[in-house]
Design a protein around this nucleic acid. Structure first.
Lengths: 333, 333
DNA sequence: CTGAAAGCGCTTACAG
DNA sequence: CTGAAAGCGCTTACAG
């Protein structure tokens, strides 16, 4: 149980700790240490089962080899998968990930940043909450390596990985139009987060082309009262005098609740009404519930976020990058 | 950006770092430091925005205030919720959690233990994989604080938090019996993990009471080929000459696939066949899919696992505890 | 090519 | 009641 230190290895071989450290960190090239000695050291370290003490290393180097991840809602499968891929990928580069959750609460996001700072993470990957811009600004001011994921703010110069929300939403709306829908409702969060506005814009653009845009068909709901809001919205749209013939649900959670309400009202898709949504849901595995959805490249999103962050952490002065990956409509075809 | 160290605070006040450290760690009672000085130190530390360097502290103390969590499948909502609650609760005690995932792969579990060891976590919470007993044995031998979660092995003396699988399964099976079912099939993983065997035993016990037990109705499937296996099993049971009138799906994932296959075959629950399952699934929110399910106290499970682990980490020589929480059948009533 | 030494920031026995 | 000093395990200029 007693850990083997670099000193133990050095003593055993009658060399200095400096030499051992150099070799074990692969800095023995450029003629610093003889190949003969290096080999002996590597062998002995392995034999003694030497494991470096990360705290000593971190204390010395000021780097923890740890990434702080802040996501908005771990119970949402989109985010839990994202977290999974981020971790898998970080691991490959020798980084650990500390995952934290905000429940879409900005104060909590501030708190999680503090927690992760006190854990001395080397950098952050953040899915920010609606009013979290000020915290992001602070991190940037303090020069923390940082990548925003899924969502971003305008007027801020920071790396970001997301998808082509505008294009994908337009594609989803186009699909409904091709199905013959004339009156398509959009259900979306009331928020100023850019990615949501882009989804809205894509919807508007698609409808405008055919002169079918009607602002009254955009229904904004609140994350905090989502269940009631969804029930009301779906009921209103279906019971209203002006009949709706298509639904665009703009997120995973919205679609789940929307479809549930439709099922309760005994309205079937796609027979009674057409629907598409952004993101996949487990329930879509069921024949009666399946609707076309915009599929985000979750694996790739996690991968790129990690890569961009590591670049920031290991090089000096990296310019912020906006990376827009391609999400496409999955029609179950 | 330059961090304030304990020395900076000490210098400013003209005292020693020892005194500052004592005060800031709340060890200034027992007449070690004058209340006057202590107050001055606390004030100054705050004013200078002093934050302790965790690495230095960990290096000195040998403790990282970090918990390593190893779960079997983060994409399963049961586990992602569990991870969430564990983290929330650990946070309250000042511990961070590093979450890792094994995908039910024993070799990966071994690797994750290494990774977490090299991160010098103070203790482990583990949802072990089927053949992972040897790794658990090793951890115990090395005296690592450890709590198994959800699953355990027999013949091993280790703390464990789980649910009353036997009772809950009996209750679930009883429910089907009360619905009038006579031929109830159990679909379960082929595994030697104790918690699965308990679920099986509960099913058997309930049926045996009414002389309805028939071993041919227990269908074992393999996690790695689950999709094919489920399709085959459900098809066979429904198409077989001896008609089944009830299904007990023993996990979340099994039930999702089972229900999906039933839907494909156009067999409806509860009209055409009765079904119950262990664990909840998001899809159950939908009217057509809802079936009664055994509800595990996820929040409480996470909470207790953290509490038991912290007890082990902070006290010497704590005896292993088996804690069986109560899961009950949720009938959507 | 290799070693002696300083120092990262903290805690804790020890001395006074 | 308070300070001087050692040491946790590592890395990295510096000296030879």
């Amino acid at each position: 149980m007693a850990r083997v230190s670099i000193k133990d290895v050095a003593n055993r071989l009658g060399v200095s700790t400096a030499t051992v450290s150099l070799v074990l960190n692969g800095k023995d090239k450029d003629g610093r240490v003889s190949e003969n000695m290096a080999e002996k050291i590597r062998k002995e370290a392995k034999a003694m089962n030497y494991k470096p003490n990360n705290f000593a290393r971190a204390l010395r180097s000021g780097r923890s080899e740890t990434i702080g991840l802040i996501i908005a809602d771990i119970s949402n499968p989109f985010f839990s998968h994202l977290a999974f891929h981020i971790q898998e990928h970080a691991e490959r580069f020798g980084y650990s990930v500390i995952i934290t959750n905000t429940n879409e609460d900005t104060a909590k996001m501030g708190k999680m940043i503090s927690v992760l700072k006190s854990r001395q993470v080397d950098g952050f990957i953040i899915v920010p909450t609606e009013n979290g811009k000020k915290y992001i600004d602070e991190l940037l001011q303090d020069q923390f390596p940082l990548v925003l994921l899924d969502r971003y703010f305008s007027g801020i110069n920071v790396s970001y990985v997301g998808v082509n929300n505008f294009q994908a939403s337009m594609q989803a709306t186009d699909y409904l139009l091709k199905c013959g829908c004339k009156r398509i409702a959009l259900v979306i969060y009331k928020t100023n987060l850019r990615h949501m506005q882009e989804r809205r814009d894509g919807y508007v653009a698609a409808l405008a082309k055919y002169d079918l845009y009607d602002s009254r068909l955009i229904k904004e709901i609140d994350y905090r009262t989502i269940v009631n809001d969804m029930n009301r919205v779906v009921f209103d749209l279906m019971a209203g005098k002006e009949k709706i013939d298509g639904f665009f649900f703009s997120t995973n959670t919205i679609s789940t609740l929307g479809l549930k309400k439709l099922a309760e009202l005994n309205i079937k898709t796609p027979d009674d009404i057409k629907a598409v949504c952004f993101d996949k849901n487990d329930a879509f595995d069921f024949p009666g519930i399946a609707i076309p959805f915009v599929q985000q490249p979750i694996h790739e999103m996690g991968k790129r976020a990690v890569e961009l962050l590591i670049e920031q952490m290991t090089r000096q002065q990296v310019l912020p990058v906006h990376e827009e990956l391609t999400a496409i409509l999955n029609k179950f075809s």
